[in-house]
């Protein structure tokens, strides 16, 4: 039996009205995030990722549809749900005149801390190499991000909602962040993170939802996603060969010729390609899975339509 989803949205839609204009920021989002998974919400800027997160947190209200978190309506039960949620906004803004410690104390007091949250915050700060004694305005953007992470995780939430979490973190800290997310998953927590950095999603997410122009284009397991759609085939020949030989082969969408080699982007079966080069002496064949970036571009082709 499938576990109850941590996040479940049904036709979640948000339309912003500015004067006479109506902008559809999110359209009929149907999404389900399972307990204990790291779910990546992927899309370019303006795709509707932040709108979705703000709807989940009840910072904005849906035009239609609904979002449930832990089986409860995100709007009607927001206060109770926020006890179980840790949030890191994309454009993080903290109280600049407070020190890191004061920020932690403030958030802990609103959460009704008995001392354990602040203790855990200190542990997280140590893990992230963050000095709490400085004022927020004196922090670098990376350190502010670290403080935001501490604040979002200090109460050991059941669900972490992170909007572009690694922006401003250096590569070393990104590794630390990735490990923290894996630890959170290992502890049974659920992570919902948005990103436009595909490598980041690839590194830690179990599943990914791809959003564009407010519409969910696909939800795939990251493992499956890298095995779908197409692959790059490099055929090395003994003699030079014209790219036109394979250009018309069904499933071939790109051909590059270089030093007796043809690099082909192939969707579908291999057989038509091999038949097309029949009679040419093949020295070697190399296949390569597309990167997530390439899959991403496949979804967001220049014409804007989703490709299969």
């Amino acid at each position: 039996m499938a576990a109850n989803p941590v996040i479940q949205t049904d036709n979640l839609t948000k339309v912003y009205k500015t004067g006479k204009e109506a902008v559809v920021a999110l359209k009929d989002l149907n999404l389900s995030v399972q307990p204990g998974e790291i779910f990546g919400f992927l899309g370019p800027n303006g795709a509707g990722k932040t709108t979705t997160i703000r709807l989940l947190l009840d910072l904005i209200r849906p035009t239609r549809g609904r979002a449930n978190i832990f089986g409860q309506d995100a709007n009607l039960n927001s206060v109770a749900l926020h006890q179980r949620i840790g949030f890191l906004p994309g454009e993080l803004s903290l109280w600049k005149h407070l020190t890191g410690k004061q920020v932690v104390n403030y958030v802990a007091s609103v959460r009704g801390d008995d001392g354990r949250m602040v203790k855990h915050a200190n542990e997280l700060a140590e893990q992230l190499d963050l000095d709490f004694s400085k004022k927020v305005r004196a922090y670098s953007s990376g350190n502010r991000r670290k403080l935001g992470l501490v604040v979002s995780m200090m109460h050991k939430p059941d669900l972490l909602i992170l909007d572009e979490p690694t922006g401003g973190l250096d590569p070393l800290l990104q590794q630390t962040f990735n490990q923290m997310m894996r630890d959170a998953r290992a502890a049974g927590r659920t992570v919902f993170l948005s990103s436009h950095v595909l490598g980041e999603v690839q590194a830690i997410c179990d599943r990914v939802g791809i959003l564009r122009n407010g519409e969910l284009k696909a939800v795939e397991r990251v493992d499956d996603l890298t095995h779908t759609n197409f692959q790059w085939i490099t055929l090395r020949f003994r003699d030079a060969i014209a790219p036109e030989v394979v250009a018309q082969v069904p499933g071939v969408t790109e051909v590059t010729a270089e030093n007796h080699s043809l690099k082909v982007r192939l969707s579908g079966d291999f057989d038509p390609l091999l038949r097309a080069v029949e009679g040419h002496y093949i020295v070697g064949v190399q296949t390569k899975e597309p990167t997530l970036e390439e899959i991403f571009l496949a979804f967001y082709g220049n014409n804007g339509a989703q490709k299969s």
Partner: peptide, 15 residues
């Protein structure tokens, strides 16, 4: 999941 610390304590009024 490991115990959520907010769930254990009641959010304090007046903070």
């Amino acid at each position: 999941p490991e115990t959520n610390l907010t769930m254990v304590n009641r959010a304090s009024f007046g903070s």
